[in-house]
Design a protein around this nucleic acid. Sequence first.
RNA 1: GGGCGCAUAGCUCAGCGGUAGAGCACUACCUUGACAUGGUAGGGGUCACAGGUUCGAAACCUGUUGUGCCCACCA
Length: 953
Amino acid sequence: MEKSFDPRSFEARLYQSWEQQGYFSPASANENLGEPFCIQLPPPNVTGTLHMGHGFQQTLMDLMVRYQRMQGRDVLWQCGTDHAGIATQKIVENQLAAQGLDRKTLGREEFLKRVWAWKEESGSTITKQMRRLGSSCDWTRERFTMDPGLSAAVRRVFVQWFRAGLIYRGNRLVHWDPVLQTAVSDLEVENREKDGSMWHIRYPSVDGGAGLIVATTRPETLLGDVAVAVNPDDTRYSHLIGTMLQLPLCNRLIPVISDAYVDKDFGTGAVKITPAHDFNDFAMGARHGLTPISIFTLDAKVNENGPASYQGMDRFAARKQILADLEAAGFLIETKPHKLQLPISQRSDAVTEPMLTDQWFVDLTNKGRSQITEPALDAVRSGHIKFVPENWSSTYTQWLENIQDWCISRQLWWGHRIPAWYDEAGQIFVGDDEVDAIKHSSLTPQGALRQDNDVLDTWFSSALWPFSTLGWPHETPEQALEWSDFKRFLPSNVLVTGFDIIFFWVARMVMSSLYFVGRKPDGSFEPEFATLAQRVPFKTVYINAIVRDAEGQKMSKSKGNTLDPLDLIDGISLADLLEKSTATLMNPLDREKVEKRVRRDYPNGIQAVGTDALRFTFAALATHGRTINFDLKRCEGYKSFCNKLWNAARFVLMNCEEVQFTSAAKPPLASSAERWITGEFGRMLTEYHAQIALYRFDLAAQALYDFTWNEFCDWFLELAKPALTGGDAAAKFSMQHTLIYLLEALLRAAHPIIPFITDEIWHSVAPKLGQTVDEQTSVATQSMPQAIDFAHDAISDAEILWLKEVLLGLRRIRAEMNISPAKAIPLLYSGGTELDQSRMQLHEHNIAFLAKIETQRMLAPSENEPQSAAALAGSLKLLIPLASLIDVDAERSRLDKELVKLALEIAKCETKLSSDTFVSGAPTAVVAQERQRLADFSAKQTQLAAQRAGFAG
RNA sequence: GGGCGCAUAGCUCAGCGGUAGAGCACUACCUUGACAUGGUAGGGGUCACAGGUUCGAAACCUGUUGUGCCCACCA
């Protein structure tokens, strides 16, 4: 083994070998099948690149699947990518724009060719990056949401829901993105607070009276006003209800209506009603039988319904002009600053416009409520799906309780084209294809059919991911073969995802799975999927925290504070990092600021830490909070941990060169140190397994870290040294055996978190235990060590505890007396029980070796103690005679310091014990424990005080 | 307006009823034969605040303050 841990020297080679050996695929049907375990990867955008969120999520998933494989489960980690409609189409459109082209001149067919070409070219980027992370998903089953099979599933769902009356087409008000020129769902619209104005505008009465003053933040929509509403109880305006107003700037009369929705105390208490461009107004217009007037074209310019002078004007320009005209005409009464929530389309950053258009919807509120929405609520309420952390379930249920119908049509080209056709009379035919559509319709087509131009929301196909990836709906013979996997791996065990897509994705997977999984044509369910519990797509939803930068800022390319997981793995120079961080800034003016921060945070760029260190960091940060702040310092610390493990292995192997064991059976554990560390390992495993079961990967990682560094390396390897270098061949042989044996087990335990380094070392270690190991073998296929095989031994534990106390005491004396570690010193024992004395004899060699003691002996009862620095191990006093070594003043102040500490502890105990309420109220065990503490402290105090008395002055 | 979080050492965070913890940072000493990506020994906290429950609260309850996120139609 190399002296230093160098991940680059083995990571790529090992991954390639794992993949080639097929370690990531579940067992085939003729093998001995374990209990199935399945995780489905949230499919990343096919043209995306790996970011820290992916890295974090995938580390956790990989940790779980590797762990479960080693627990003997038959594991499927289903992977694939998403076509990501808008995002992907935009990338290609931008490329075209750079060449002076646009999709419309190219035509639909040619444009789609280009998108597919781009997908083929860049689609493997992210899957290659996933391999760098060590993700052990089954690449042989990789799927893409626009694969033929998945596309068939999409059509099937659409058609079935349509025929069941759960998908409908309607002319509704939707969120419209005027830049992308498509409808978007309410989830894709973000409200951002902006400083705006509230304008008060007079709408005079038709008879020339004062009329009403309305308050609005969108004066340009006045062109589409059909009424002014007031509260029915508002006595200021009751006389006007039912009268007509003259709409300013327009040659139109509109009525004053009354509606309880209007808040008397907000604004002027009078609201202009624009049903075609406001969701509330639309509802109110419907209540009052008012016909909406659309005033904008699809790119948000005033259309033919507006007065001629405004037609063709962009909505923001129109606002300016209308305000100017109102002012000129004396209708603008007041302008007040006002904070408003601007609806912004997530994909384009454009202000969306409510627009009346023909769109397709999934009914989730009428018939769909009982058939789709309610089951999805029940699955969580009844606990068939559990959220981790638990509180996310209320986020989920509250959203579903208030859900709206889902607008699923998008006016894009890249995606699943809606399987609906229109005849020349505008009649709708829905089916798998044109023929199927006609066959299943009661209508007779008039003239030629043309297919709907729109595509489905990307999330429509993502919603089917759990079952569409497993071959649903199993109609061809080829798909039918997958039916056994389908039954076997659904429901999957755990879904790992971010809270930001609970609504977009998680809820919709639940809805579609509960409806379609195992559903027969007659609407009943296959016996394997008869219950809700059997049809849920996953049993647990683990909501991972969002990764932020070290300062807690959201990572964003436009802010220039992202970290690329691969840059942590491979390292990056400062120059390259600067270049990368400033390449995609939203505001180029930030460049200087970003550069300054990068220079401050990464003065030397980023050193390569390797995949394992990054993975360990992710695991260690995986607390159940909402956010984790990614601190590079922490990552470097875990690289040191890898190095520590590497060197511990080197030490073990160097000391075992000449030995060879024939089996992996438990060694004889000749010494108390061996028995103690074995028990410690068992304790660690208990904790480790328990924490993984609770999804506390941070605590599991910590258990591993603590054991490896603080017990195995710091104590056991040190305790091993005297045996390895001493003359007792049998003791040495046993020690060698235990070292190899525990190291091998430790590597197996750690493998799920740090797969590369453990496998690399394991290849050198396992042969020592008689295992045949070659390039095709891997620790990944070994079994996970179990706590029950590493029992502890109380006597050895106590003995090693005692030995630690002795060594710690001696070290402290050395440190505080400033005695060079190189200097051998004499040691005298005084007092102590018989047990202390026997232990002292037993460990004489260890103590001499580990504390560099040149001579040691017990003082005879008759002998006087020489002036010494002292430490205590139980009631045994350890004395380092002063003679020329020790500074009397230093020892005096050291003793004083310790006595002060003791007095403090004793006072605390005494206060507690002198309280009647404590003694009578607390459990007897707690009281007894407190008494014991006091006794121990007092004894120690007595000893030290006596020692201190020897240094009078 | 609803909902959900968070506030513990300089920093990042565990702990969630019985002696305040880890990593990093800091101080001193040490290149000893696994590891200086190291070793040894240290310093550092009225656990945001105020009440309450309890023999006992960092932990449980209530409120306050600060802070973050999500949802929502106040024009």
